[in-house]
Structure formats: C-alpha cells, structure tokens
Design a protein around this nucleic acid. Structure first.
Length: 613
RNA sequence: GGAGCGGUAGUUAAGACGGUUAUAACGCCGGCCUGUCACGCCGGAGGCCGAGGGUUCAAGUCCCUUCCGCUCCGCCA
C-alpha cells in the first residue's frame, strides 16, 4: 500500500515550518500556518477527513474538508499511520461542543489548504503511543519507533534538561569540564573491564574506563582545581533493571576539599537540578547517617527513609532462648509491621519465598493477638523473652513481627529487602516525595571470600578515616573510609570520597590490599609518582545520571531513559551488536579465536519486508 | 554460575484432563460514512503456536534439548 502511495511524495521545496504541533491555541485563530510531522491518527469520514499530526511537541488536529479546500481533500484518503506530512492551513476554532479538553491544542484545528507527502511509512509493528504495550524485545528492535512515543521523548528531554542544569551549576561554581580517555589502562581491581585489542601493539589491550577516577585525580595534581565531566563508563558485569554495561556518570572532583566541601557542593547541585527540572525545592542540608546505623536500622547501605518498618536487633534478648536458632545465631533481628496481623498464611508464605532469595532458610513471624501471640515459634519463648521483644519492638495488638536469625549479612539482606518489598505491597510509600540521605563512614575494606583477601569497599584511592591509618593493616575490618553515598528514595544516586593524596599512604593502601610493591608499581606506579609531585588534598564524587533520570521520570527500567540500551545479555537488538568480525580484522590485531562463533539467528526487521500489506 | 516468569495472526492476549476448522481485541485490506478525536458500521485477509527432537492413534497442550526477552541472586573496587 505505502508503495503505491510513494508516487505522491514530494520535496519540501521552499516550505518552512511555522509552528510545532503542540502550541496552537485560540490565540492563533485565523493565522496561516505550516506544520510538519507524522500522522498519528486518521479518521476518514468519507467526506471530512481528520488527521492528528504529531511531532515531538504534541498533536494537532488537521481537517481536510471537501467544502473548505477541495483540492487539499482530493488525495487525503491515502494518508496512513506514520506518513510524514507538511501541512499549510488556517487555524480556526473548533465548532461548538467539539473542543477536546485532553489536547493542549484541543480548542482549535487546522484546515489544510495545501499539503505535501514528505514520506510514506510501512505499517509500524506497534502503535506509536504511550498506552502501547508492545514487548520490550520489539521495542528495542525498532527503537527509533519506540523513541517516537511521547513518554520516551519526554524521558530523553528530561535527561537533557538535567545535563544542562548540571553544567550550569558547575560552570557557575568554576568547575571545568575536561574529557578523559576512553582507551585506557586495564586495572585488576573492581569490575571486569571491557578490553580493546591494540593493532599497533600486538597482543596488548586497552580497557574502556570503569570510571575516570585516576584521570580526575591526576587533573587535581595538574592544578585544575575543580573538574567535572558527564562521561560514559563501562563495566563488563551482568545487567539488571538499573544496570547497563555502558552508563553515564556526572563525575566531579575538587581540590583543597574535605567531606563538607564536596557534600555541600553536591547538595547544592541536586537542589539546582530539582528546581530547574522538576520545579521542586528540596530541603538542605540532607540528613546524614553513618553506615553502621543504616545497616542496623534498615539492613542495607542505601535506606529508603520514606517509610518506617525499621529493623530491631534482639540478639541479646533471645541469647538464652529455648528456640535454638535464636539462641545460637550471631544476629537476630525483628521487623514489626503495624496492623499486619491480618496477613494470610499465603501472603506470609510468599514473603518466606522472597527472603530465601537472600539465603534465608525461612521466615519466623508472630501475630500479636489480643489474647495470645499466634506464631509457630511463640511456644519456645519465655515470658521474659516475650517481654523483651515486646518492649524492643514496641508491639501492640494487631501487629505482626517478622524475624530473621543467622549470619549478619544474610539477616540484613533478607529483612532489609523484605522491608522494601512489604512497603511496596502495603502501599505505604508516599508518592512524589524525594528523600535524600547521606550515608557516611563506610568500611574501608570488605573481605572477599573468593580472593581470600580484603578489597576496597569504595575504591583503593579512598582515604582512611582520621586515625584509622594503622587499622588498614592491623585490623582492616574495623577501618573506616572517608567515603559517602548520596541515597535518594532507597537508590544510590551518587558516591564519592576524600582521596589519598600522599604517595606513602597510597603505597600502604596497596599493601593492605595484598599487592606486592612490584605489583603496585607496575599497575599504579604513575599514580603514586603523581601523588609525590605535590598533589593537593582532594575529593569528589560521581552521580549515576541514568539512575537519577530513572527516579525523576518514574521509569521502572534504566533502559527507558537511555536512547539505545542493551538487553540483559548485553546485545543490541537493533544493530545486532556484538557480532563476529572478519578474519582479516582479527589477523591485523594478532588475534585468533579459540572457538568459532555460531551463526546467530537474526531477529528479523530492518531489511526485511513487513508482511502486513 | 544460579533461581523464576514469558514466547500462540502485524500487536497484545485467551486456549481445563492431549481430541474436530486454534479464539478475541486492536491493527491491516476493501466498502459505506461531512464533526470525529483510540470515530462508527459492514465485509475480508492474516498462523510451521520461538526452534529442534521425543512420547502418542492424536501435541499449542506432556517430556527432553536449545534460542530469545524480562525479573532477581551471585557479580557490579
């Protein structure tokens, strides 16, 4: 069909667009205007033909009338979804009772006097509208069509506005945007690197940056004083709804700065962004919470403080309990759900399944009834233990309490995540509230079972807390870091630290991480050397731009705020990347594959005929 | 590396215990229609039930393998 219609296609010629499709109102009554856009809907009444013309700004109803403009009406019946049009016409008020209150332009319509078909379109594989519920694989394979939808357009515009706001704020504060290399050096710490083979240095590889961390520190040594960059970062790890292999950071570093300097700057930045983009005034300064407290009260290092359901440590209360699991566990915690006594067995079973994800064996619970504690475990608890638990959790009739006992990591993960899960199910999270929180005083190290050594919690350039220098080697588990995370509604949106600016301290850090002096030298010698050339004290942080946009837009997936994202298997359904390369390319790089890639089934679209006509 | 959910016309979905021609809505095509706005009415086309193998007289349905998408655990300094 669209093929027959191609004979109607004409050039733009001298036509100039005068307005967008989202702005005409009664104020434009009588004006001769020119719109360009895509056919959203066509309503052909045989006589009158209505076309809703769409561009990124909105929709405008265009009327092809056999009475008012017979010439324009003549061929208008060929118009189909997503055809590209230029319309010249006259703005007029809609007749009495025909106003569409759902459209910004609903008071008026444009009577087409002349039009040009700029292009036809095959029938799109899914409707270009927000209520469209096409599967995500289809959307990703036809991403440019998906991006025509108003919601996706809005997300990308929001992203742009945030980036602009960030640039304005930081520019005003004398920050300089500096670009750092994309082809850089692989470092063994941290996430898996994406590697790029070097043709000129056969057998050697660049790595794509996991973050510009070292470069921004070197810029501080260079006297740049205040740096930022909105920068792509790469990590070759498994994907999630909020994780992509390439993502964007707002990366910031400041010289002669301590925690107060950096956090104050970051709060101001958020306030500016929220004001510019959302029109919201957020309260400054943000509350702060030491990491220990976050773990104790919320079980996670990024607490959502929009609701209660806090965890309570009852380990000591049940130390000698007849319930052996409680008596012997290194950590026992309870979480009270006020008024949750009416939960069904089925619901509780579902929560039990939920916590098993985090390694829990089960989920103990007690319902506080008027005359008794209804629970599989109540019979094991002494009166004294009941009293202690009731006081610790401030129990009232009608409550339910969930318990978890075991290794601290598991207990906190299970209850901490159950807490958020429950809050969603119970709909107790206030909509439209933005709760910021700084989490501070992170551990400097955490033990890695796989590598049988301590690894940096944040990264190995993070300064130890004042007075914790010796702990780095004597008692690494107790050492705290000068690190801070910015948390928004239970998501980590930013994180940073005061860095080590002494070569000597940096050497001790690598030593604490189990590096030999030779390893430290070969991998990070250039950094240590730089720190010995008059490095100023410095620190900074980085925001995850994608996650921030996700929160601001209310999107449920990071993919909805990235123009061309990857699937969970890190492929691009539109370009079919990654893909095998020619033998010649491999030869030039000095590479040989251990296994030949199997022929991947193609997904069927660009290049294939749509079968619908 | 692991757990779970899904894959049926172009799209979104329904298809009890295996059983006749595999449904519906939207979309598409044709016809009618001068005030619709997710227009309406009438008619029509459209399917290797993700792919491969098996069980069976008989498989969309049961079994095995595999591919793809999504969610999560591990992982993500």
């Amino acid at each position: 069909m669209q093929q027959e219609h191609q004979k109607y296609i004409t050039d733009l010629g001298q036509w100039q667009r005068s307005h967008s499709c989202g702005e005409l109102t009664l104020a434009n009554d009588g004006q001769e205007i020119c719109l360009m856009g895509w056919v959203q809907y066509r309503r052909d009444h045989g006589g009158l033909i209505f076309v809703d013309l769409r561009d990124r700004m909105g929709l405008t109803q265009v009327v092809f009338s056999p009475d008012a403009a017979p010439k324009a009406h003549e061929n208008a019946h060929i118009l189909r979804s997503e055809y590209v049009l230029a319309i010249k016409g006259k703005v007029r008020p809609r007749p009495e009772g025909m106003i569409n209150p759902n459209m910004i332009t609903g008071q008026i319509e444009v009577v087409a006097t002349e039009w040009k078909l700029l292009n036809t379109s095959k029938t799109p594989p899914f409707a270009i509208e927000d209520r469209c519920d096409a599967g995500e694989n289809l959307r990703l394979a036809w991403r440019y069509l998906d991006l025509r939808r108003p919601r996706m357009q809005a997300n990308l515009r929001l992203r742009h506005k945030v980036a602009q706001s960030v640039r304005h704020y930081l520019d005003n504060a004398d920050f300089v945007e500096v670009e750092t290399p994309i082809l850089t050096k692989s470092t063994p710490e941290g996430a898996r690197d994406f590697l790029v083979p070097s043709r000129l240095n056969s057998g050697e590889f660049y790595a794509l940056p996991q973050s510009p961390q070292i470069f921004k520190q070197l810029l501080m040594v260079a006297g740049m004083d205040r740096y930022f960059q909105i920068v792509r970062c790469f990590r070759d790890e498994d994907l999630r709804a909020d994780r992509q292999p390439e993502f964007t950071q707002v990366d910031i570093e400041m010289s002669f700065a301590d925690e107060e300097t950096v956090m104050g700057m970051a709060e101001g930045l958020m306030a500016r962004v929220f004001k510019d983009v959302m029109g919201i005034d957020i309260a400054l300064p943000f509350p702060r919470m030491p990491w220990d407290e976050a773990m104790a009260r919320y079980g996670v290092d990024k607490p959502d403080t929009r609701f209660g359901l806090e965890l309570v440590n009852i380990t000591e209360i049940v130390r000698g309990s007849g319930f052996k699991l409680f008596a012997t566990a290194p950590l026992v915690k309870g979480m009270k759900v006020p008024g949750g006594e009416g939960m069904t067995r089925k619901e509780i079973d579902a929560f039990t399944e939920f916590v098993k994800i985090y390694g829990a064996q089960g989920l103990a619970w007690i319902k506080i009834k008027a005359d008794e504690w209804q629970s599989p475990i109540a019979k094991f608890l002494s009166d004294e233990e009941r009293k202690g638990i009731a006081e610790a959790l401030d129990l009232k009739v009608g409550d339910i309490v969930f318990f978890q006992a075991g290794e601290p990591g598991m207990v906190n993960a299970a209850l901490g995540n159950l807490r958020v899960h429950l809050a969603h199910q119970l709909h107790i999270i206030p909509e439209d509230s933005f709760n910021f929180l700084w989490v501070t005083d992170f551990p400097l190290f955490e033990y890695n079972d796989e590598e049988k050594r301590y690894v940096a919690c944040h990264h190995p350039f993070t300064a130890p807390a004042t007075g914790h220098m010796d702990l780095m080697t004597t008692d690494p588990a107790r050492a705290r870091a000068r690190a801070y995370d910015m948390v928004l509604n239970g998501s980590e949106v930013g994180g940073g630290s005061i860095r080590i600016h002494s070569g000597e301290v940096q050497r001790r850090m690598f030593e604490a991480l189990g590096f030999t002096p030779e390893q430290a030298e070969s991998q990070f010698g250039f950094l240590i050397q730089a720190l010995e050339q008059g490095a100023p004290p410095h620190g900074g942080l980085a925001f995850g731009l994608d996650r921030l946009i996700m929160l601001l837009s209310g999107a449920s997936s990071i993919r909805d705020v990235i123009a061309f994202p990857k699937t969970q298997k890190a492929t691009c359904l539109m370009t079919d990347a990654p893909s095998p390369v020619a033998a010649k390319q491999l030869r030039e790089l000095g590479l040989r594959l251990r296994e030949q890639p199997g022929d991947k089934p193609k997904t069927g679209k660009p290049g294939e005929e749509a079968k619908t006509e």
